Amino acid sequence: MHPRLLKTFLAVARSRNITRAAEAVHLAQSSVSDQIQSLESELGAALFTRSKTGLDLTSAGLALKPIAEDLLRLDGEARAAVQAAAGEASGSLTIGALETIASARLAPWLPGFQARHPDITVRMKVTDSGALRHLLEDGDIDVAFCFDRRDVTKGAAADRLARRTIVAEPLVLVAAPGQGSAPSDLAALATLRFVATEPGCIYRHLFDTAFAEAGVAAPKFVAEVGSIGTIARLVAAGAGLGLVPRLAVSDALARGDLAELPWPSPMRAAPLVMIWRRRRVQPPALRRLLAAARDTLAPVSERSPTSSEPESANRSKALL
């Protein structure tokens, strides 16, 4: 079974749709269909059956899926081992990131990395946290840059991933200029209007947790928005207050488009992490990117002390 056929099979299994699978593996729909037929002919069994909701795996397909995932993982590790033994550090990498991190952290940093490593081609996918986890687990990206939420990264899937905290990004309470001062306690703050991120986002999680731990009902939201940039514009227009990462609004604060207000209780920072799949041998190109991100991505003044890094981050050092 050629790895190319297994990759196409897994793309169809995950998307349950030939069109979306073709987009994922960058093939024409007819090529995806031909490859699935070729794999079914080789194995002597149908792998999919069509239903009203899409393509479903047959019992044979369900049996093949975990084995195909293992075979592709071993194929990648074999290539990485050969590259490492040959001293090769070239190759291509795909990194995934949240919009805020991509624009504020990675965009200024990547050109320097690529200048130091011209033989490494880097592609970037920008999407939400949930999609990043799926892309990473499926092998569609090599490393994800996101904000850590331990409450949604437990279990076997988390055990297959290594992570390192790069920096703790502070959150700030922002308002339109001249809107006035913030209340001195969370109960009074909860009576005001807010523009918030959607449920599942780390900022929203920290926001909801702050009120819950104080025994105060969270405010009602004027809007729930997936884009931090849109939230900043709505806040600047007077729609309500917002709790956002400082790195996303530092320019707006400096220009006076937004005003920072004090948060009336201790507020946790959002830990910015890079997450990658554990392997016996990491591709040399990925090792270089992980090491460079560890050493140079966060400004020196913002790096967390080594002694405060979580145990999982310390374990990650051995993998770099």
Rank of each mutant, 00 (worst) to 15 (best):
P305E: 01
L64C: 04
L297Y: 01
E302M: 02
I18W: 00
S51D: 12
P170F: 05
V249F: 07
V281C: 04
A13Y: 03
K52F: 00
P299C: 02
P271A: 01
R116S: 01
I18P: 08
S184R: 14
L55M: 12
A190H: 03
P266L: 04
D151A: 06
E224Y: 04
L286F: 06
K52I: 13
A217E: 15
P66K: 07
D151Y: 06
L241H: 01
G229K: 01
V216S: 05
K7H: 00
A217I: 15
M1E: 06
A285G: 02
P305V: 07
A21V: 13
Q114G: 03
A68M: 08
S33E: 05
E302L: 03
L5S: 01
A298E: 01
E77P: 06
A212M: 13
Q35F: 02
L258I: 09
T49G: 14
L106K: 09
S304E: 11
R315H: 06
L74E: 12
A248H: 00
A252E: 12
A254F: 05
L62Q: 15
P170Q: 05
A102V: 15
A78R: 08
R163K: 12
S90L: 03
G112W: 04
G178V: 09
D257V: 10
S31D: 05
V244R: 04
E99W: 04
M1G: 02
A21E: 14
L43N: 13
E99T: 15
F48D: 12
A187L: 15
A237S: 14
L106T: 06
A131Q: 15
R193D: 06
A78P: 02
L43M: 12
L253H: 01
E99A: 14
E137W: 12
S38C: 09
S184C: 12
R204P: 00
P266N: 06
G256T: 14
A252G: 10
A60R: 08
A84V: 08
G200E: 01
N17T: 14
A144L: 03
S301N: 11
D142K: 01
D34R: 12
I67A: 11
R163L: 11
P299S: 09
E169K: 03
P284V: 05
F221W: 08
L71Q: 07
A239Q: 14
L47G: 13
P199H: 04
T230K: 15
A80L: 06
R4P: 03
A176K: 11
L5W: 01
Q114C: 04
F207Y: 11
D208I: 11
